[in-house]
């Protein structure tokens, strides 16, 4: 009986952990995508200050969430996005808007890739 209870607890633990990892990645992806897209639009429309502020917010948010994501996502993927986010403040500071937008696009792609690899779909399973 004790073994049965332990197995049920482990099953629940595995399911909850897996569920939380997918949900958390989804939330981070949604927030990051929103901030990055908004920063890109601001940069393209010449609102440099707003773009800088949004990029700063996105970087700060990422730095906070990164600590949670490394618990269940391959560190290399997380590190790549951290590198990209770290470049943003200096790019906007030196008025390199095209590079700034390009890095934002890259950040969006990496975030999307992280999210896609977490999805329990057949392509990922196989």
């Amino acid at each position: 009986m004790a073994r049965k209870i332990a197995i049920i607890c482990i099953s629940l633990l595995v399911l909850v952990t897996s569920g939380i990892s997918v949900y958390h990645t989804y939330q981070v992806r949604e927030t990051m995508s929103g901030m990055i897209t908004e920063a890109k639009i601001s940069a393209e429309t010449g609102e440099k200050e707003k773009a800088a502020k949004l990029a700063e917010q996105a970087t700060a948010y990422w730095e906070k969430e990164e600590q949670a994501l490394i618990i269940f996502i391959h560190h290399t993927e997380v590190d790549t996005l951290t590198d990209v986010m770290a470049k943003l403040p200096s790019l906007i500071e030196h008025d390199d808007l095209s590079e700034f937008c390009s890095e934002l696009d890259q950040a969006l792609n990496i975030m999307e890739h992280i999210w896609m690899t977490q999805l329990p779909v057949i392509q990922n399973v196989l």
Binding site: V14, T17, S21, I70, I71, F72, I73, H74, H75, T76
Partner: peptide, 11 residues
Amino acid sequence: DPNLPMVLSAV
């Protein structure tokens, strides 16, 4: 591989 989270092995 320390780059791999331990949870990915425990689960």
